[in-house]
Design a protein around this nucleic acid. Structure first.
Lengths: 338, 338
DNA sequence: GTGAAAGCGCTAACAA
DNA sequence: TTGTTAGCGCTTTCAC
């Protein structure tokens, strides 16, 4: 068992210089077809595997895109990563994924760690970071894309929407359909800034419309279906009167729905329920859940396209917008249709 | 705007050699506390960011663990990656994730691409690969862990279970509770070898028990809740008589359940339904779904622990087992309890 | 506890 | 279309 071959070994075997081998491995390089084929054949036979680590150092390009998301086990974020990956993979880039568990300190740690890998761009979820993380991102020397939120002042670029505004629109719709007293079921504030924004939007809309409301806390993010069920149980047990429940995500909404079914509370007759996010479960639940589709996959796809065009240095087209608004879609469904 | 500082810049500023700076950045290195603090202070002030790419090349260690999964949008695999990440992150390793879309050719492409990054270990889902992928893995020179399946002949290590056996046990249980005619709702074979294994287990058990059965195809993986609903609709429309439906995953099972509810078919009174995987939805559905909990998170965690012990080169302890069996748990619930 | 010299395996830059 | 030279920013190795 000898050492694995390197580029100079392939070059020697093919009777060319290492530089020619290097060129042969890149699509657009100027190498004669004959030479290229010969090189590739020898490489395959000898089991040569190109060493990116050397290439990365010498060329000062890694092909990495660093990505941080709050949780891997949330279909919304998974969809965003998938959308992003579909685009950047096409451009020969590799995602470096990390998740923060909805913790800004963990995010800071992760960003510092990921920057050491010398990514060519970095995509983060949300626009709230520690001061240090913010500084690291600003001085990273690569494009930064903040997703899912539209921060007041994006570091470089933002692809997302206003969670508060979207929630306001949902509440206004429920008010239009006749809801008189609402509860909001959501997580604690710590970490899940999108959840907190949705709650702010809920409160703002309810107060503007003169609707009485209550807030039910679910504990820290991530919010699961089970916790949605528990929160609904608590709300029903508390004896509070309400005819509409708005949940911070479809998962919580579905849990709340099952709890109602378990207790014989009819949805939407006795109580209307709405979720947020546009998860699969909203469509398949019986009754299907009214939700706000955040277009998770599209957020990733558009972030990827923005990023690829930035890295290609397309100076010809129009310079990219700092903010890409992905307007969410209100999907009214059976759970709020009396 | 000047160029970002490198290690020699920090060394010059601190009045030490680059080597001392290098040592100061590693935990166990022999540098006096005073020197170390001075160096770290200067590094922070100047915004120095350690360059892994150079370290990777010189030390021939990247700290990467390559991971391929069929899909990011499957909570089972996401759980496995989370379990894996929790462990390897602790050991200072970074996951390089790729997904194959249940396609072995895509897997081959991905493996080749990931190996160029010089990972220190590689974790793949399943034990079926193209010949070329198999060769690449075997000659990669790093530990290979195959998960979710137990291949006949693992390349290096396997962490998982027999999908066929687990399904057989489920079918035997349903037979015990009085099921007389079964349908299996699952995907096509192309790509999803775990799904195919489950189907084989179903057929084998049904034939052993003398149970009449039918197979309903869902189309190619991944199988969604919606497709489960559609498959159940087709099965009910076909007029075939059956009193039990076994689904390749809980997602399909939940879809099938909602379709039954939509049509007034009572579960479990008229029809019992079982899923597979141990997804959250199984527990929260009404009625809750009988399932086989594959312990997705544990598969990842154990893979990570195995891998970390291999990379630490622990020659002292017992040499690691080639096969780590994570026995799935049958969770009998309301959807099959008459 | 610290330093000097050399080099990891590629590719930028220039030359032919 | 191909080759030569030098060097990316660290860390190995050896020395003190």
């Amino acid at each position: 068992m000898s050492k694995p071959p390197k580029m100079t070994d392939i070059a020697a075997a093919a009777g060319v210089s290492p530089m020619t081998v290097s060129r042969a491995f890149r699509r657009d390089a100027s190498v004669s077809a004959r030479t290229r084929e010969k090189i590739l054949k020898i490489a395959e036979e000898t089991g040569y595997v190109f060493d990116s680590t050397a290439s990365n150092l010498r060329s000062q390009r890694t092909g990495f895109v660093a990505v941080t998301i709050p949780s891997l086990n949330n279909a919304n974020f998974a969809d965003t990563v998938r959308g992003l990956n579909d685009v950047v993979q096409e451009a020969g880039l590799q995602i470096l994924l990390g998740y923060t568990n909805y913790d800004v300190l963990e995010e800071e740690r992760l960003i510092q760690q990921l920057l050491q890998r010398r990514p060519e761009a970095i995509v983060v979820t949300g626009g709230h970071h520690t001061d240090r993380a913010h500084r690291l991102l600003k001085s990273a020397g690569v494009p930064v894309i903040e997703t899912w939120d539209i921060p007041e002042k994006p570091i470089d670029f933002a692809v997302g929407f206003s969670n508060a505004d979207a929630m306001e629109r949902l509440v206004a719709h429920l008010h239009d359909t006749g809801a008189k007293r609402m509860v909001f079921i959501g997580g604690d504030d710590n970490g899940d800034t999108r959840g907190a924004d949705r709650r702010r939007g809920f409160v703002k809309a309810a107060e503007r419309l003169g609707l009485p409301y209550e807030l039910v806390s679910l504990g820290p993010a991530p919010v699961s279906m089970r916790e949605g069920a528990r929160a609904m149980a608590g709300a029903l047990d508390s004896g509070a009167a309400f005819d509409a429940a708005v949940c911070v995500s479809d998962l919580a909404a579905f849990g709340a729905l099952t709890e109602c079914q378990r207790r014989g509370v009819s949805v939407p007759e006795d109580l209307i329920i709405a979720g947020f996010g546009g998860f699969d479960i909203a469509e398949v639940a019986t009754p299907s859940l009214t939700t706000v589709d955040a277009h998770s996959h599209e957020i990733g796809r558009r972030s990827g396209e923005l990023l690829v065009s930035l890295l290609r240095g397309q100076t010809d087209g129009p310079s990219p917008q700092q903010i890409t608004l992905i307007e969410p879609t209100l999907r009214v469904s059976d759970s709020t249709s009396r």
